[in-house]
Design a protein around this nucleic acid. Structure first.
Lengths: 114, 114
DNA sequence: TCTTTATACCTTTCGCTGCAAGGTATACAT
DNA sequence: ATGTATACCTTGCAGCGAAAGGTATAAAGA
């Protein structure tokens, strides 16, 4: 029950946000995230797949299996609930980064102009 | 050696950045951070003190003890090395948030204007 | 033909961060 | 006397996310 660190849940945020553009399968998701962040952030398979399963079991995503040239792909799509969660996560993220921006950009130095 | 999560080290960043304005003792630091972030972020004692010790042992901070009306205060100040680390952490933070901003704000939807 | 590379899925293991909670001690107000 | 605020510190643990290992198909290259 420990209060999860205020910094956690970014992979989840990225996953949900990326799926907002349309259903994707895990492997595709990973690449999409890497691409959308200009290679700055790579979410590995050990993060993506467990996260997808967890999100689905929480009702944030729904999946359907599709057979494409012999390979099985599991496509995930946002549910209404997932969209709501996403909205909350985005808001939280913006709140946090704004706060940190304040602290690191901010206020502190009138020292520069004596 | 595991690659630490790309999201870690924010408390460290906030601590170093806050100490840039001048030396502080732990308790004061905590309050300063809370205040600088408009109460959005609270770094607890269980985070601050271990972090201060770690940073000092890495040479990022130097401390001096001061006796103020019967209570001992341990004041911490940035070293040159600490300043450099801070610069790096800030840069890294900005890089990350920019990337996430791209992913969550970004690119994806020309979908909004059909 | 055989093996490497890329795709696609999944799980187990574990390091590390940061939080909660507990512990000590002084000063001051009630 | 007892509580509240200050000031320091440590231990224990939850949980996140990374590494690494495992299965299987298809296509390219040797």
């Amino acid at each position: 029950m420990t209060n999860p660190s205020f910094m956690n849940g970014v992979p989840e945020l990225l996953i949900l946000r990326t799926l907002e553009s349309g259903e994707m399968y895990g492997y595709e998701l990973m690449q999409a995230i890497r691409s959308r962040t200009n290679q700055a952030i790579s979410i590995g398979e050990g993060v993506v797949y467990p996260a997808l399963h967890a999100l689905e079991s929480e009702g944030m995503l729904k999946s359907r299996r599709k057979l494409v040239s012999g390979r099985t792909r599991v496509y995930y799509a946002l549910t209404r609930k997932g969209e709501k969660r996403l909205t909350g996560l985005v808001r939280h993220w913006q709140h946090i980064t704004e706060a940190i921006g304040l602290a690191i950009g901010g206020t502190a130095h009138a020292a520069t102009t004596p």
